[in-house]
Simulated assay, not measured.
Amino acid sequence: MKKVRGIYLKNDLELASMREACRIVAVILRDLSEAVKPGVTTMTFEQLALKRCADFKVKPGFLGMYGFPFALCCSVNEEVVHGFPSDRVLKEGDLVSFDMGVVYDGFYGDAATTVPVGEISPEKAKLLQVTRESLAKGIAEAISGNDLYDISRAVQKHVEGHGLSVVRRFVGHGIGRKLHEKPEIPNFEPKDAPRVPLLPGMVLAIEPMVTAGGPDVEVLSDNWTAVTKDRSLSAHFEHTVAVTKNGPRILSLAD
């Protein structure tokens, strides 16, 4: 594993391990999404995530990380990220976000998705669509020779072009043997930031967090759950992506 400007470049063997870690995460997220329906408690998803980790014989990536007490980040409606699974019951029209990670062969996999609970309003559907599209726009810029902030600019332009807001407090990140590696990947273009050229072997967790209102967030008294300050709805999509000579390769796909 080479290191350039503090960023680890993965070789083919390391990328193969990361692909499997991310594939497992994608399968777990698919299973969680299929279990979403009105009347289910969010703790149900924590139990399912733990069971699937045991099935795959992998370590939950988030459990105990910085003291986080669960395997799954489960955030509902105005909760942006790091929500706790609980006895909260999902209702028709809710939005529930899952952020999941595992460790396989010493490497982390990480991905996130937001799922509608039953029928949702056109406004909520727009929030999901734009957030999902902004992730795709960002991934399309993860090309060797581009700058890291080409990703940031693409996400921000798409989100704000649809009248929504990008959360600035939380950002994407490099990933590998550690969950959080360099570089940080903001979903907005920072002012006067030094350029970071993208190179083959970089692996990036790109994760737009988008709100229907303003961009500001606050953390609740549990010291983890981040909510929109104006209590507007939020959505979160994330893929782990490898920069290759042949373009971006999404590692966190189930098939």
Rank of each mutant, 00 (worst) to 15 (best):
S221D: 10
A136T: 07
V219K: 12
K124H: 04
L135K: 03
L199C: 05
H162S: 13
V196Q: 01
G93C: 05
V103I: 15
T114P: 05
V130H: 14
G118R: 03
H162A: 15
K91V: 11
T113S: 14
L179N: 14
L148K: 00
F188T: 09
H158T: 09
G118P: 06
F107I: 08
G109K: 01
V130K: 06
V203R: 08
I175R: 03
P208M: 13
A154I: 11
D150A: 14
L220Y: 07
E184T: 10
E123D: 09
P190F: 12
D147C: 02
E119G: 00
E189W: 00
D105F: 00
V96H: 05
G161K: 11
R132M: 12
A205P: 02
E160T: 15
V102E: 00
K191H: 05
V210A: 03
D192R: 07
Y149G: 02
R195S: 05
G172T: 04
V166I: 15
P186W: 01
V130S: 13
K178E: 08
P116L: 05
K157D: 14
I120G: 14
L198Q: 01
P190L: 12
Y149E: 03
V130L: 12
G138T: 03
S234E: 04
V227R: 05
P197V: 03
L179D: 13
L164H: 03
P208D: 10
P197C: 03
G163H: 00
G145Q: 02
A212N: 07
E181F: 02
D192M: 10
R132N: 07
D222C: 04
T114Y: 05
E123R: 07
A136C: 15
G174N: 07
Y108A: 04
I143L: 10
I143M: 10
L128V: 12
Q129V: 12
F188L: 04
V96E: 13
S121Y: 05
A212R: 08
A226G: 04
V130F: 13
S97W: 08
R153D: 08
I185S: 11
E141R: 07
G106P: 00
R168T: 11
L220T: 14
S234L: 14
V96L: 13
P197Q: 04
K229G: 01
T114E: 06
T113D: 10
A142P: 00
L233Y: 13
